[in-house]
Design a protein around this nucleic acid. Sequence first.
DNA 1: CCCTTAGGATAGAACCACTATCCAGTACAC
DNA 2: GTGTACTGGATAGTGGTTCTATCCTAAGGG
Lengths: 207, 207
Amino acid sequence: MQLKELSEHSGVSAASIKYYLREGMLPAGQTVHATRAQYSARHVERLNLIQALRRIVGLNIEQIRGLLKMADDGAPRLTLLAAVQRVVLDLGASTTSSGGVRAPAGDAVVRLRNWPDYPSDARSALNAHLELMENLNIRVSSELLDTYSKAMDDVAGLDIAVTTAPDSVDQLILTAAVGLHLHSQLLLKLLALAQASHAIRRYEQDA
Amino acid sequence: MQLKELSEHSGVSAASIKYYLREGMLPAGQTVHATRAQYSARHVERLNLIQALRRIVGLNIEQIRGLLKMADDGAPRLTLLAAVQRVVLDLGASTTSSGGVRAPAGDAVVRLRNWPDYPSDARSALNAHLELMENLNIRVSSELLDTYSKAMDDVAGLDIAVTTAPDSVDQLILTAAVGLHLHSQLLLKLLALAQASHAIRRYEQDA
DNA sequence: CCCTTAGGATAGAACCACTATCCAGTACAC
DNA sequence: GTGTACTGGATAGTGGTTCTATCCTAAGGG
């Protein structure tokens, strides 16, 4: 497959493919001659991954390059998963972890759910986020955390089962990043719908 | 309060304040004379709102201007809430609602939870999102939707109680937008933590 | 009375993800 | 053998967004 065909197969413009090559996100094709290169199905897969991370998850070039580099360097799956979480979590984080004084509320969740007591990016992100919400005077009761974390616990098992299965590392990244993002978006939409429903009900009562 | 003082009070640069004035997001101060204007605490509040919508929720100028215009035009609360949901939901939406053939899965959720059967942006966003996930072969079981929607239902009541209370309209927007966004981010972080926990547990088993 | 500020206008800057153009070299079809 | 199409490489430009900076005149206040 030549560059032009690769472009047609993947739906990415030739100029963009060149750009990705320049940025080191797409491995160079096998140079048959000085002016001819062959691309494989792996390149198509990689392009699809890049597109999904850009379009759906909304990662930027820098973040995608980092993840792909780790994958190409043969990082272990758990490390890769952690890296994926890091970039997906960073998206909306103001990362103002101002060294909290009190015991972080996120740690309580870990105990409550009987999750293994390993420090992780997810955990510090959670703690930072809870602190942020507190600073903004948005109350997060422990009952709420209980409800939320239980629901997340219930579903995480399924996700992980899928995540540890896939054959290619590209697939792993795709599943982890896109899955995490889309589940969060799904929850956002359900929450909005629930809120709208409650608001309408209340409005009807008043009327 | 003069422009410079307003800048100091709000932490927004004078140039930016001028920009917001130009863009019609901040009402003009009371012109005492041709070259002197007075700003009030409302301006500070409004600036804080703008900052929160930009920095935390990640809305763009256009979206913020729209919301503020509605607020200033005295739109009813329910309308305002719907508008807030619309912009917050649109953030990650590919909005490729390709006119599904089958019965949308989101409608089933509405029936299941016994929510009022009102069409809303949240509902179409949910349907579109479920369709997207299906297209990407990310399975969303009805048990999962049940778990998720129940958790969201449980918490929406609390949120709405808070949302209908605040006195100023600026506060309403702030609470609704920031609240919706931060809850979604909270869920994202909990989900990541849950996934990481499950992954670690599984890894320990294998080792 | 002069320094500082206001308001208005306009231009520039910085970032990001491309996109377009140009180039010389060369394989492949005919 | 010739011409076309395509290559990698380099470099510059585009378009959108959110500011930021500069310049101007007019005028209040210590």
